[in-house]
Design a protein around this nucleic acid. Structure first.
Lengths: 140, 140
DNA sequence: TCTTGATCCTCCAGTCGCTGGAGAATGTAC
DNA sequence: GTACATTCTCCAGCGACTGGAGGATCAAGA
């Protein structure tokens, strides 16, 4: 039953105030009730919803996917295949990102290790970036 | 000695034409010479430079870091400590990204595995995203 | 009660790294 | 010669925020 200001919501959910207003403007958060002096007031449900959004963003979900998930969450009587499919698609995405980053790490490690602390002429940081033959991975 | 059109440069470097012009506009690529009819003409050095840029972008370097690296590459007589430091900083970045993504993967995997294919009410995809207690990692 | 400073409001412009369209001028191939 | 592809510039938009201007309102201390 606690009525929260936008500032309180911001700290409780860990989302900046302008971002909260932005989420409202793009329809991720429903417009809250207002005080007589036109200030937004939120309830605990809004905290949960905003945490949901923030968490999903941290997981790398795009706003559009989140919108779909929120719609699902608003209709808990429906089967969750759609939410499951969304999550599965995202999992594949995460896994590809990890693989790519691991390859990049190997490459940059090689760059750093091979830098002879000499002149740029002999510096592999530049070389590796300039020359595809130094690639350890196949992203192109 | 081959003179390349922007289209040829685009295919050889794997960078879209508007992106090439964009890179020129922000000073990542020097303005090339032009034909009588005002079309850009590039040489092989431009291909290497653009590949350098593209590769660095794929490695997740920000344009600003790339600008610094390019400046270094343009002055090969200088010591490469700066380039090395840039690469090292980026390596730390990549490693943190990998760790975060691995944690996210675990979380999303859990979500997918626990989804009972029932109703949303019992679907962990929604639950995990809504409730911080389900987190396996510590990103907040 | 007054005043100070924190918080809130709306609107708008900027960030980064592109991306794509409009409309016009060329280049190339049959 | 005609058709189609390519290029030119300029400008607007994308996603997902972020922050400032200028003004109203609130909460707490003197």
């Amino acid at each position: 039953m606690s009525a929260l200001t936008i500032g309180a919501l911001s700290t409780q959910a860990g989302v900046k105030i302008p971002t909260i207003r932005y989420y409202e403007s793009i329809g991720l958060l429903r417009p809250p009730s207002r005080t007589d002096s036109n200030r937004r007031t939120y309830d605990d449900a809004a905290v949960r919803r905003l945490r949901f959004i923030r968490h999903a963003r941290e997981l790398g979900f795009e706003v559009d996917a989140i919108r779909q998930l929120l719609t699902l969450a608003d209709h808990p009587e429906q089967p969750c295949e759609a939410a499951d499919a969304l999550a599965r698609a995202h999992l594949a995405d995460i896994e590809s990102k990890i693989r790519r980053l691991q390859a990049l790490r190997a490459e940059v490690r090689q760059m750093v290790n091979q830098c002879a602390q000499g002149e740029v002429r002999s510096c592999h940081v530049i070389e590796v970036l300039a020359d595809h033959a130094h690639c350890l991975h196949e992203h192109h």
